[in-house]
Write a protein that binds this DNA or RNA. Structure first.
Ligand SMILES: Nc1nc2c(ncn2[C@H]2C[C@H](O)[C@@H](COP(=O)(O)OP(=O)(O)OP(=O)(O)O)O2)c(=O)[nH]1
Ligand SMILES: [Mg+2]
Ligand SMILES: [Mg+2]
Ligand SMILES: [Zn+2]
Length: 572
DNA sequence: GCCGTTTTCGGCCCGACTGTTTTCAGTCG
């Protein structure tokens, strides 16, 4: 798919136009186009051939033409044109905190600064002094910004940020000045990666709260500290921003600070058309404040139900809310079991007993034991006789439980040649069959898709695990025609997994939404190899909610009998 | 550059902080 390339090009055009001082609204349009294309689940070439490009909100005549040109010729003349005489390095300079397009352009014009090393040299030689609009403090700021830029890390998985934010909030609650406190930003929206951690607190003594914040354990660097806000870096490397507001502003501030930016802008536009004004301080009619202590005030004022944070990406949730058609999103308490877990029979650490004990503690009614299969030597995959033995063990153990069942399963390898690791005479003895790809990542898209489809068409295969194979911190997924996979899953009654492991989160939110729209059932599974990974089901719930899933779309909201029936149905 | 049941032209979210700013531009969230 060329989606990613085209989105990148529009983003670049926006950057360069900004540098050149072009109209900010036009720049915004390119940014918006870039974003909607990146979010698209359809292949943009397909949409172009059907002349449906301008149906996409944010894509008009101009951008549509540029897309078509790129698809036809592999080039976008607007891009080539604006990039003339501009270096990529110069664009990167704008990422330095405190350095915006105006300053970078000026430095380039006046001192011929192209990249970071030029800038550092110029600073060293004191060349910035005396330039228009640059004083000592500005220079100081740029030096700090460069340091911050050099040491800042990439976006991290929400799974890494999650424990950090829990720890910080628990710590700050010890300060009695804190009335209300909650995570906001991308973390509250459960976005798969977060750029920073945003926390909102309320109370009258902001200084005390910020003081607790910057002096808490784990802080390695204090980036800012004032009466109503603080910003630190913690030992995990991530930046944490705290804002403190008055109690009666908490709702409006939480709405603002949760974002997303695009969601906020869209809401504010609607408010404006209704003669209202929304800001982080409240909802206003003229001078009069008409709400803002509760978050839902903001949505109520616009005639909407409160939109769940996970949906707030400006991907149609505002329109749905206006029509009263928000989905009834799945919740953690709907989950009755975990559908992908490893024991010490393959590469996991827990015994069956330990797994069951923990599952029961989590309120589950069942747990799927899905150890690896024989081809996966590195993971100590089970051979036929070992799997048969495992089945016997589990059957024995199950007699001890009341209202809880360990389900017999395998995570069967889909081998590089497309064949499966067990024959039907083994598979028929299992309750659930999970299948997944662990090899041949570099194969052609057609080949990988073919392997996947073959597995999906096997009447014993119920769930395809980590369907794209991506690892958030390490690699893109393998090339697979996800549209085709979704289509065949829908036809065959095969479920797709949201793998909850923090570095996978695969399916992601947008594929998940797409699968649901196609009528594919979803399994939310942790793929836990240790007991202490089972909490990650919370991450998967976040992804599911971002994918607009309701409880009825998810097979592990089913009772054990209904789940078994779901699996058996395919065999008939 | 995009968009429209009050508009096909004239808008496009709103506010805080900083600096060398004398009335505001640039940057950020
Ligand atoms: N109204 C409005 N709100 C904004 C704007 N920029 C940021 N916000 C709000 C919404 C964001 O979710 C929130 C926190 O800002 P962040 O830069 O931390 O963004 P966010 O957490 O969404 O993403 P991140 O993962 O940190 O990159 O502030 C803006 O330009 N206008
Ligand atoms: Mg953030
Ligand atoms: Mg932030
Ligand atoms: Zn697994």
């Amino acid at each position: 798919m060329k989606n990613h390339e085209i989105a990148t090009l529009f983003g670049r055009i926006a950057d360069v136009l900004e540098l050149k001082g072009d109209d900010s609204f036009r720049i915004n349009s390119y940014r918006k186009a870039s974003r909607v294309i990146a979010d698209l689940t359809e292949d943009i070439e397909k949409l172009a051939s059907e002349e449906k490009l301008t149906d996409i909100p944010g894509i008009g005549k101009g951008t549509a033409e540029k897309i078509v040109e790129y698809i036809k010729t592999g080039k976008m003349s607007k891009y080539e044109e604006v990039m003339k005489g501009v270096s990529e390095e110069t664009i990167t300079l704008m990422q330095i905190p405190g350095l915006g397009p105006k300053t970078v352009a000026m430095l380039n014009r006046e001192l011929g600064i192209v990249g970071l090393s030029d800038l550092e040299n110029a600073l060293h030689e004191g060349k910035l002094k005396g330039l228009f609009g640059i004083g000592d403090k500005k220079i100081e700021n740029i030096i700090k910004g460069i340091e911050l830029f050099k040491t800042s890390q990439q976006r991290i998985s929400i799974g890494m940020a999650y424990p950090v934010v829990k720890r910080i909030i628990a710590g700050l609650r010890n300060n009695p000045e804190v009335k209300d406190i909650q995570a906001a930003g991308s973390l509250r929206r459960m976005k798969e990666t977060v750029g920073d951690i945003d926390i909102l607190a309320s109370g009258t003594n902001g200084a005390s709260i910020v003081e607790s914040f910057v002096s808490m354990n784990g802080v390695t660097q204090v980036l800012a500290s004032a009466d109503t806000k603080g910003s630190v870096r913690v030992e995990e490397g991530v930046q944490v921003d705290l804002r403190v507001v008055k109690e009666d502003e908490f709702g409006a501030a939480l709405q603002y600070f949760t974002g997303s930016k695009e969601h906020n802008i869209h809401l504010r536009e609607i408010a404006k058309k209704k003669g209202l004004k929304i800001s982080e301080y409240g909802i206003f009619k003229g001078e009069k404040k008409i709400g803002g202590s509760m978050e839902e005030d903001v949505y109520k004022a616009l005639g909407m139900n409160c939109i769940p944070p996970e949906l707030r990406e400006n991907r149609g949730e505002i329109e749905a809310a206006q029509l009263g058609k928000l989905p009834n999103l799945i919740e953690l308490s709907d989950i009755k079991g975990d559908l992908h877990n490893h024991s010490n029979w393959s590469d996991g650490t827990p015994t069956f007993e330990e797994m069951a004990e923990h599952a029961i503690k989590m309120g589950y009614k069942y747990l799927v034991v899905s150890d690896h299969s024989k081809s996966l030597h590195v993971a100590n995959g089970l051979k036929d006789d070992e799997l048969l033995e495992e089945i016997e063990e589990i059957d024995k153990l199950n007699k001890k439980f009341k209202g809880f069942t360990l389900l017999k399963a395998t995570e069967m390898d889909i081998k590089a040649d497309g064949s499966l690791d067990f024959l039907d005479n083994i598979l028929e003895k299992l309750d659930v069959v999970v299948a997944s790809i662990h090899s041949g990542f570099k194969q052609e898209k057609e080949k990988i898709t073919e392997r996947m489809i073959a597995a999906i068409c096997n009447p014993y295969v119920n769930i395809i695990a980590h369907p794209t194979g991506r690892l958030i911190s390490k690699r893109e997924g393998y090339e697979v025609d996800i549209d085709k996979v979704i289509e065949v899953c829908a036809e065959t009654g095969t479920a797709l997994e949201i793998n909850c492991y923090y570095d996978r989160l695969d399916l992601n939110d947008i594929y998940c939404r797409k699968a649901r729209e196609a009528g594919v059932m979803i399994a939310i599974s942790t793929d836990a190899h240790h007991i202490d990974q089972m909490w990650m089901i919370e991450l998967g719930i976040g992804i599911a909610r971002r994918g607009w899933l309701e409880a009825k779309d998810v097979i592990n909201t089913f009772s054990v009998d209904k789940l078994k029936a779901f699996c058996m149905k395919k065999r008939k």
